[in-house]
């Protein structure tokens, strides 16, 4: 078995506040294999982005990694010096953020930003870095890259800027790209193009992608595996077609059920009743118990861990062997 690019074990991110400690990410474990696309899906505040920030080592203080390990190619990166981490960021792990309009520094040309990043990580001369930058812009589909490279960010449209951001994230050939809602701020018509560019470039370079989104459609088209997060925990993780076709966790079932289809004639959109609990008010037992249609006694007392079920892992007592036998 190949070694995963990234493995996260028992990751817990906490924020000390005046009213006590908030746990934004709670005991999350997953792995990403080389070249694989892992989708991470969940509602706002489920801990998706926080997991991404934790991996790249950019959690805003006072937040901190309270427990767990993050390993890149088998080496821990959650406890290395900030200097060492700076060499991993951009070089080994690239990151793409949600809003391309604000991700680029408005005062520098695209060329300046690309060349600065390339030369930070690779031993290239200014001229060679520029050539590499133009080639990258070509790759991400910016027409007339050799000329447009000297333009400023405000001279590009949103979709084009996100292509530039992708070029910046990929410019040192990282092994893993964390894409945090890369298409959420874009037009629907542009979204597919951006996902396509990202997927193609990562496949060419053998880079794995961790795709954070709340859009099940994007996950279905893009990801190999998907992790569904709820209230800071992984509810279900497994191959994407299995999870989508036959969701096991009641929350995933609810998510799938709430995607409207064109074929059926529905008056009302199906929804999961209630809202995700605030971090300060997560109920005892399973965090999903107030909204779960299949809730039973044990859900109020014990917190389920993601346990193997068929070819995936599910954090639900419904699939506990002991429970099934009883």
């Amino acid at each position: 078995m190949t070694q995963p690019v990234l493995s996260v074990e028992g990751l817990t991110v906490q924020f000390p506040t005046r009213r006590g400690i908030l746990t934004a990410v709670d005991d999350v474990s997953f792995a990403i294999n080389p070249g694989e696309v892992l989708g991470v899906v969940g509602e706002s505040g489920a801990g998706k982005s926080m997991t991404g920030s934790a991996i790249i080592g950019l959690i805003e203080p006072p937040g901190r990694i309270a427990a767990g390990e993050i390993k890149l190619h088998g080496e821990r990166i959650d406890n290395v010096s900030s200097d060492r981490m700076r060499k991993i960021r951009g070089r080994k792990i690239g990151m793409i953020f949600q809003d391309p309009l604000t991700s680029l520094n408005p005062l520098y040309t695209i060329a300046e930003q690309l060349i600065e990043t390339i030369r930070r990580h690779l031993p290239l001369s200014h001229a060679d870095a520029r050539k590499r930058a133009i080639a990258l812009l070509d790759d991400v589909g910016i027409p007339d890259a050799a000329r447009r490279i000297d333009d400023y960010p405000h001279q590009f449209s949103g979709g084009m800027r996100q292509r530039v951001v992708i070029a910046l994230a990929l410019c040192a050939d990282p092994d893993l790209v964390i894409a945090d809602e890369p298409t959420t701020a874009l037009d629907v018509s542009v979204q597919a193009q951006i996902i396509d560019v990202m997927k193609r470039l990562c496949a060419d370079r053998g880079a794995a992608i961790m795709l954070i989104t709340h859009d099940m459609g994007v996950i279905a088209e893009t990801a190999d595996r998907v992790a569904v997060m709820y209230a800071g925990r992984v509810a279900e993780i497994g191959p994407v077609e299995k999870v989508i076709r036959s969701a096991a966790h009641p929350y995933t079932q609810g998510l799938m059920g709430s995607i409207p289809t064109l074929s059926t004639d529905e008056d009302r959109l199906t929804q999961i009743p209630g809202a995700m609990p605030r971090l300060s008010a997560i109920p005892a037992g399973c965090a999903f118990n107030p909204r779960c249609p299949k809730v039973f006694d044990r859900c109020y007392h014990d917190r389920p861990d993601p346990l193997p079920h068929e070819d995936r892992r599910v954090a639900c007592w419904l699939y506990d062997k002991a429970e099934a036998e009883a």
């Binding site: 790249i56 950019l58 700076r86 060499k87 991993i88 960021r89 951009g90 070089r91 690239g94 990151m95 953020f97 809003d99 604000t102 991700s103 680029l104 520094n105 408005p106 005062l107 520098y108 600065e116 990043t117 930070r120 990580h121 951001v165 910046l168 994230a169 040192a172």
Partner: peptide, 26 residues
Amino acid sequence: RTDYIKFAKARGLSSRAINFGHALKN
């Protein structure tokens, strides 16, 4: 606090480049 500073950090730039090259100029 802006996104482009966060993105500059995510690109692994040095603190000096981020603080003086990117932040101060803005």
